[in-house]
Design a protein around this nucleic acid. Structure first.
Length: 886
RNA sequence: GCAGGGGUCGCCAAGCCUGGUCAACGGCGCUGGACUUAAGAUCCAGUCCCGAGUGGGUUCGUGGGUUCAAAUCCCACCCCCUGCACCA
């Protein structure tokens, strides 16, 4: 396909459509799943061109952030699984690998691979506009975005907990960890229990149970530390194994190392909630690697504590402070019910979960604020303790231990001077709701999901300590995080090919203010052209992506647009498509079922891949790619090809008219289907259904194909789905031919042939049944054309929606009352929904013309009900003509 | 916990918004046939139950309800899946 026919520029007075699909992240080659979003967008772009729009469809590469760096590192380290995928699945030669250890070279290599694949797929992209998010021009654009956010007061600085490797001195995402585990950060509360010269520090998920405290637990065999918080000067006792995590959040000096036993023997400590003295007991279940290695004991509400205390013979201490319907003393009840005998019993985990859940759902406080639901008390106690200086806010890795690829245990670091975008801002959200209100989503149900996401969106960290991309303009040591630099980037497409005429230094805030907001004056003519280009193409008319981006990227996309641009530049439409499955399973390297896109194209051809990923299922559903599907498409395509080649001229037999009317019927709903982007429906009607219609037509006409005009229209309709096939038949200019106009069509003609087709399969079925039972196949077929008055009857029934009284006002029918009673009784409630019928005349024509096909079943004769004596004749109906077999 | 999605004839999966043409599209699997030396591929037919006549019966997670009519609308219940961020 010629490279430049999809280069789009503003055309005065021509309506435009600007489509974008989420840009790819080239940290590996693309597989067939990546092709779906672009295939859908491309089909849409092509339909819009057929509808007369000036269409812009660009693409670029997203290279921001750390995964590309991580990928290069893995290759450098010789990571087996990564190299296996690259070499064995994507067929990358071994010699190439050393080059890919350089992130930038890796980006160039994979992005070229991706680009090549997209070109082979025939996507109608304006390639001049391609860019990378680490390009200096783009960096300037992103800087502008952040200036705008700051001006609007939407950037703030604060501290923020992140997963962190001390060894690598770097933040950890899931791709940085061993086994690709996503480290989950959880906020807990670390309560300060006055002890000797300082505090025993114990973490808990359940601060509200503090009032039921009976003692503390220390692991007698564990190592503990006495430390001093540099900021407050306070002294804490925690386990040695948790120091790394603690010191990543607070500056401390280590003063002394102690054995667990020494702590236990050191005396009592106090409950900060009420000043009560409580003892310290030894317990082996205490994990010195998690939390702070110190545990508070609430035996009435924690099964572990209850069992450990029972082992010491002190279970009588248990103090009930929460009332839960169905329990007396919850921990005691459940331990006894589950027959838990000692601290090592694995059932204790289960018991803890149950108690936790029941208390959280149904529990009410008996002390402190009596009657308060546990759910509220938990938060209230926590805030009270922290605000009163009785506890610390503390973060832990909830799914720990998680290890970095360097092998050290990941901790939670409290990063100071962290910048945030304040998505929690109420007025901002209000604008986002307004944008959603005026926006169309396909499918419609995703709008609610976008709304929900806007609802719970809060502040988001927008900088990171490392990664590719754009430097944060207000702190050059930080990089802008990757979801934050891909929000308003579609705006950059409108100018990306023109902006190269300027040097990055020229791209000041004022420069973009003029181009993107129309503020100020142009510095020169070229500058003015940029403004015009943006103003012509923006806003984005349709944004396409996968369902995984709804809760993050797409919501940020909306938020940033409404924050920065005036209302008329806000997004107009969002389209979501599902993933591609391989033989019903998700593609994954562990299953080894990844089909690289370029390999698939080589094997089956681009049209087949395009068609299989867009036609197979509803837009939002995952679609299944497998061999039978591909074979089915290929086989049908070959049949169409054959028909097209055979066709010559335009016939005017009944069958020709029938196909023509049927195509018109399909056309009548096509524009609506395009509007809904219901490519599945379009494929079904124009490819699968049409296939069977053509086959029947071919049989009826005995191979004489005269459908030039029909095929001409058909090819245009299929062009967006099968561009190569169509270009081959009609030339490349088919891309810009207008979509055939919708027209009225004749339902009766379609129905007439429908009745004959049904009749054919009914007769075949009957013959089979008779043959099975009697061993003889009846080959004399008498088709009885229903009496004229029956057609009249059905017409009236249809018009009157089954109201018989109205039908009887017709005198010509009233005389058949008795028979009508019998017919309608058999039809029962189908009376209310008579489908469109042929006239008797049309039916006879269809029958006459299809005789040759029917004759393949036996010797056929046609006789009208009026002149037939056979008793079966009475049963003949317009939609089910009677048949006599002998 | 909060939010969203879903349970359809062996499997996958349409239909449900807009009730009737729905025994319910399509594909896989299975059965039979054609083709072939044979296998594969392909093509044709069948695939809930009953039936020597285009028909009848019972089905769409479970139980109710609305309606002339419910897979489709309403209510209740049971079960399953996904997301919860600072990461692309």
């Amino acid at each position: 396909m010629a490279a430049n026919i999809f280069e789009a520029e503003p055309i005065e007075g021509k309506k435009k459509r600007f489509l974008t699909a989420a840009f790819p992240y080239p940290n590996s080659p693309q597989h067939i799943g990546h092709a779906r979003t672009y295939s859908v967008t491309d089909a849409y772009a092509r339909y819009l061109r057929h509808l007369g729009y000036n269409v812009l469809f660009p693409m670029a590469f997203h290279v921001t952030g750390t995964p590309i760096i991580a990928m290069a590192q893995r290759i450098a380290e010789g990571d087996k699984s990564v190299i296996d995928v690259l070499m064995n699945i994507y067929g990358i030669p071994k010699e190439k690998l050393p080059e890919l250890t350089d992130p930038k070279k890796l980006v160039m290599y994979f992005s070229q691979e991706v680009e090549q694949g997209m070109k082979e797929m025939g996507f109608s992209i304006d390639w001049r506009r391609k860019f990378y998010t680490f390009d200096p021009h783009f960096n300037k654009f992103i800087e502008w975005q952040f200036h705008k956010l700051k001006e609007a007061g939407l950037l703030v600085k604060g501290s923020h907990p992140v997963a962190w490797s001390l060894k690598l001195n770097s933040a950890m995402g899931s791709h940085d960890t061993k086994g690709d585990v996503d480290p989950e950060i959880e906020e807990v509360v670390a309560i300060k229990f006055p002890y000797k010269d300082g505090f025993l520090l114990a973490t808990t998920y359940r601060p509200e149970t503090l009032f039921g405290l009976t003692n503390m637990w220390i692991n007698p065999e564990g190592k503990y530390l006495k430390i001093r918080d540099k900021e407050s000067g306070e002294i804490y006792y925690i386990s040695k194994g948790t120091l790394d995590n603690f010191s990543a959040q607070r500056d401390v000096d280590v003063l002394e190392e102690l054995d667990g036993n020494a702590i236990i023997e050191g005396g009592q400590c106090k409950n900060p909630a009420n000043g009560e003295e409580v003892p310290i007991f030894p317990a082996t279940f205490v994990d010195v690697e998690s939390g702070t290695g110190v545990v508070m004991s609430v035996p009435a509400h924690a099964p572990f504590d209850y069992v450990a205390l029972r082992d010491l013979g002190k279970e009588g201490l248990a103090k009930k402070i929460i009332n839960v319907p169905g329990y007396d003393i919850p921990a005691k009840d459940i331990v006894e019910k589950m027959h838990i005998t000692n601290q090592q019993d694995p059932k204790l985990e289960q018991a803890t979960k149950r108690v936790y859940k029941d208390e959280n759902m149904k529990g009410k406080m008996l002390v402190w604020k009596e009657g308060m639901p546990v759910k509220e008390a938990k938060e209230a106690v926590k805030e009270w303790l922290i605000n009163d200086g009785k506890a610390l806010r503390y973060y832990i890795i909830a799914n720990g231990p998680v290890y970095s690829r360097a092998g050290d245990k990941i901790v939670v670091k409290l990063v100071k001077d962290q910048w945030f975008i304040t998505y929690g801002n109420k007025e901002w959200k209000e604008k986002a709701y307004q944008c959603l209100e005026g926006m169309k989503t396909i499918p419609p149900e995703i709008k609610q999901e976008l709304k929900n996401t806007v609802d719970w969106l809060d502040r988001k960290a927008c900088t990171r300590s490392r990664g590719l991309g754009t430097k944060f303009p207000f702190d050059e040591g930080q990089m802008i995080e990757s979801l934050s630099d891909s929000t308003i980037y579609p705006a950059f497409y409108t100018i990306s090919h023109l902006i190269k005429d300027f040097s990055p230094e020229e791209l000041t805030v004022e420069f973009f203010d003029y181009v993107l907001l129309g503020k100020g004056e142009p510095i020169n003519d070229k500058h003015a052209v940029l403004r015009k280009s943006f103003d012509y193409w923006y806003p984005v008319d349709s944004r396409h992506s996968g369902p995984d981006l709804i809760r993050n990227h797409l919501t940020f996309y909306i938020m940033n647009h409404v924050a920065i641009f005036p209302r008329e530049k806000w997004p107009r439409q969002i389209v979501i498509n599902g993933f591609v499955l391989m033989d019903g399973k998700k593609m994954s390297k562990s299953l080894g079922n990844i089909l690289p896109l370029r390999k698939a194209i080589k094997e089956h051809g681009a049209d087949i891949i395009r068609f299989s990923v867009v036609s197979g299922s509803d837009l939002l559903q995952d679609t299944n790619f497998n061999r039978p599907l591909v074979e089915g498409i290929k086989q049908r395509l070959a049949f169409f090809d054959d028909m097209l080649k055979k066709s010559s001229g335009n016939g005017d037999s009944f069958a020709d008219k029938w196909i023509r009317e049927s195509v018109k019927a399909k056309l009548s709903t096509l524009r609506d289907e395009i509007e809904r982007l219901d490519l599945r429906e379009i494929s079904k009607k124009w490819f699968y259904d049409f296939y069977y219609e053509l086959k029947w037509y071919n049989d009826v006409k005995n191979g004489k194909i005269e459908l030039d005009d029909v095929f001409d229209k058909w090819l245009i309709v299929l062009e967006p789905l099968l561009p190569f096939f169509v270009a081959d038949k009609k030339g490349e200019n088919a891309v810009f031919e207008p979509l055939p106009e919708a027209d009225t069509y004749d339902e009766a003609t379609i129905a007439a042939m429908g009745v004959v087709r049904d009749l054919y399969s009914d007769i075949a079925n009957l013959q089979r049944m008779v043959e099975q039972k009697s061993g003889k196949k009846p080959s004399n077929i008498k088709i009885i054309v229903p009496a004229a008055w029956k057609y009249r009857l059905f017409e009236r029934l249809k018009a009157e929606k089954g109201n018989l009284k109205a039908v009887y006002t017709d005198e010509s029918l009233a005389q058949h009352k008795e028979e009508i009673m019998r017919i309608t009784k058999a039809l029962k409630n189908k009376l209310y929904s008579i489908p469109s019928l042929p006239t008797r005349d049309l039916f006879e024509k269809a029958l006459e013309e299809s005789k040759a096909v029917l004759a393949t079943l036996g010797s056929v004769s046609v006789i009208s009900e009026e002149e037939c004596q056979h008793e079966k004749a009475k049963a003949s109906l317009p939609l089910k003509p009677a048949v006599v077999l002998e």
